[in-house]
Design a binder for these strands. Sequence first.
DNA 1: ACCTGAACACCGTTCAAGT
DNA 2: ACCTGAACACCGTTCAAGT
Lengths: 243, 243
Amino acid sequence: MFHKGVLEHRSSRVKMVFMVTTTQRTERRADALSKARIVEAAIDILNTDGESGLTFRALSARLATGSGAIYWHVADKTELLAAAADAVIARVMTEAVSGGEPREAVRAIALGLFDAIDDHPWVGAQLSLGPLRSAMLQIFEGVGGRLQALGVPERAQFDAASALVSYILGVAGQNAANARLAREMDRSDRSAFLATIAAQWARLDPTNYPFMRQVAAQFAEHDDREQFLAGIDLILAGIATVR
Amino acid sequence: MFHKGVLEHRSSRVKMVFMVTTTQRTERRADALSKARIVEAAIDILNTDGESGLTFRALSARLATGSGAIYWHVADKTELLAAAADAVIARVMTEAVSGGEPREAVRAIALGLFDAIDDHPWVGAQLSLGPLRSAMLQIFEGVGGRLQALGVPERAQFDAASALVSYILGVAGQNAANARLAREMDRSDRSAFLATIAAQWARLDPTNYPFMRQVAAQFAEHDDREQFLAGIDLILAGIATVR
DNA sequence: ACCTGAACACCGTTCAAGT
DNA sequence: ACCTGAACACCGTTCAAGT
C-alpha cells in the first residue's frame, strides 16, 4: 500500500517524504514521542518550576529521551513556548464560550484569560511576546464576535476589538510579572505586601507624585481581578459611545 | 575632613562604609566606571543589537573592563535591563510633559511612549516584565494627574488610570514583539507584509473565524499608531461616562 | 573601594551515529 | 523516520587576586 505525497513538518522547514508501508501498519507505542506529548510535558514543567525550569535537559529527562529527539518535533525553544501558550489559551477559550448576552460573554472571556494567567504566569509573558499566533487569533475572534452581536457599527469593530485585546494582554503581562515577583520574594501575605507598597507611595515627593500619594490608600485595598473587570467595563462603555 | 556614615549600595545589599578623605578630593577620571555609564552603554548596545546582543562580555568589552567590574555597580542582568528601561522612559516622560488641555496631554503621553517603544522595542518587552518600577510610577502619575484635571470623580480615578496604563503597556508589549519579528524576518515592505497576513485571515475557516475574515480587509490598511490612539480615545470616552 | 579575568556551572543547539 | 547523547559555542555569575 502506498502513501503518495506525505507532507512532513520537521521544525519550521517543510519537506516532501515518500513513505512506503505494508498494509500491516506498525503500531506506535503509546509513549511514542510527538509534538503534542512534548508540549504537554513542557506545560507541566512550566507550571511547577516556572520559565527558568524549562530546559531541554529537564524536558528530555522527563520524556526519557535525548535532547536531540525533541528537536526532531520542535524547531527551537521559542516555538516550544509559543505552542505551550497556544495550548493553554485554546483550552481557556473553548471553556469560555458562553452563549448568553454578548456583554457578559466578553467579560467571561476576559475573566477566563485573567484566571488562566493567574494560574500559569508564564502564559502571560508569552502572550505579550508573540503577536499573530493562533492564541491571539482565538482571543481576537472571541471578543470581536461579541462586539458584532452587541451592535457595534462595522467600521468601529476592528479598533474596538483591538483595544479590548490589547488591554487584556497588558494586564496579562503585568499579572505575570507580579506572579513571578511573588514567587521570588516570599510574598505569602498579600495584604501586608500591598500595604508596604502603599506606604512607599504615600511617602513619595508631593510635587512630583501628587496622584500616587492620593491613590495609595485605594491601592492597599484594591483587588486585581475587580480592577481588571472595571477596566473592561470602562472600555465597553467607551465602545457603546460610538454610534 | 570626615564623611561620617556613607551609605554604599553594592548590588542590592546595603552596607555601611566609613570613608576618610583629605580635603583634596581625588579627582575621578572622566571615564571612571559608574552605574550611569554602564546603563548608558547597555542602552547603546540594546538599541543597535537588540536584547540578545546585550551580554556581559559585550558590555565589558565596550567599557574596556572585566565583566566582574560591572557586578560591582549592578546586581545582575535583571537590574541592568530594568535600569535601562527606566532611563529611557524617564526621558520620554519629561519630554511629554505638555501643559495644555488634559485630554490632549494624555494622548501626548501615550503617543510619546508608543513612539519611544517603536524606536526601542526592548523597552516594551521590559515594561510588561517589571511591575512597580519607577518607570511605571511616572507613567501612572502622568496619566492619573490628567484624569484629575479632567474632572473624573475621585473614586473612579484609580481604576481609570489603571485601565489606561494597562492598555498602553499591552500595546507596548505587542509592538515590541512585532518589531522583533520584523527584525528577524526581513520585513522591509510593511504593506506587503500586512497584505500577506490579511490574506491568511481571509482564508480562515468561516464557521470558527467569521470576525477575523470580515476584519481582514481593514487590517491590511490599518495604521498601528492610529489604532493605538483610537483605543486611547475609546477608553477616555468610557471614562467620561462615569459621573 | 574598585577592578581584573580566569573559572564554574549551565544553557540551547547541532550532528554523526545508531535503529 | 526517528532517536541518542556527546560535543560545541556561548552565557550569567563568582571570586581570588591585584591596585
